[in-house]
Design a protein around this nucleic acid. Sequence first.
DNA 1: AAGCTCCTGCGAACAGGTCGCATATAGGTC
DNA 2: GACCTATATGCGACCTGTTCGCAGGAGCTT
Lengths: 160, 160
Amino acid sequence: MAAGRYPAGMGESDQVEDALALLRSQGGRVTSSRRLLLRCLFDGREHSTAEELAAAVRQLAPDVHLSTIYRNLEELERLGVVVHAHLGHGPATYHLASETHGHLVCTTCGSTVEAPATMFASLARAARHRYGFETDPRHFAVLGRCAECARQAGTAAGRR
Amino acid sequence: MAAGRYPAGMGESDQVEDALALLRSQGGRVTSSRRLLLRCLFDGREHSTAEELAAAVRQLAPDVHLSTIYRNLEELERLGVVVHAHLGHGPATYHLASETHGHLVCTTCGSTVEAPATMFASLARAARHRYGFETDPRHFAVLGRCAECARQAGTAAGRR
DNA sequence: AAGCTCCTGCGAACAGGTCGCATATAGGTC
DNA sequence: GACCTATATGCGACCTGTTCGCAGGAGCTT
């Protein structure tokens, strides 16, 4: 689980460099910790916490500090490269802004299901219509019970 | 803002006593801090944080400790009397389970709009249908921009 | 190569929440 | 009403997730 996460191919390098170019164009500087962080974001699984990203980055650069990860994530978020979402009670998770989707988080087992933005379309329409509220489809976290946990709860029903 | 929140009339007393009876029927004990907490929950505005509830309770019983508030809220949640929800980045907010609704939280100004559960019906249906996921309509927190902030952002558009 | 920024490591601080412990108190029993 | 036991409470310590201030280091411009 720990090994084999990072730089496998070279596919995402372009995207990493694109993001770095954007960063530079805004007066930011290209540093190795930033490049590594971006690489981990593009390579790793989605929904990484800051801690997980720090661990991944440290496999190649052991001295990168957690606070640097946080600061860089904040910067990347300002640039629109990544977004974070709060999935339940734990730490925030970060993923690429390009992979916009909602999250269905199981409060029983903690698993998360990604739901396409289209699933939220009617809700977004209703919110706009009734309240003038513009929902942000990136930042969704809908809690409930995943199929498996719902089934188990159903089986043991009447208990409580 | 500080004065006049608690025990105004006697209207909610029945509900408070109902909840206490439920508590007692489960082996719990009726204590003054619990009665006060319930009263604040019924009287106060919805979406109170633990800290706010503690402040309200302390107006009548200054020695009630914050951890007691947390423990009692946890207990009341287990009994299904209250629920908590996470509205954005701040502390969790608690409200009566009977007042079930979703929340639209403005990420710009922090205001929250309560949305009836019906607004989430089609989302809930889609989630169940596609993923077998049973959404919990009490625990929603949908982020975005309220009408006012959206308008201002629209007015100043092209900036950023 | 110098110099001005910006970035980083580091630890301290912070916020929100939880826990363990000794003491107090609710509420059943005699 | 006194007694007893389980439950609640106050209190402080702790924990997790995140932010901040600072001094030193490294990118980019000239």
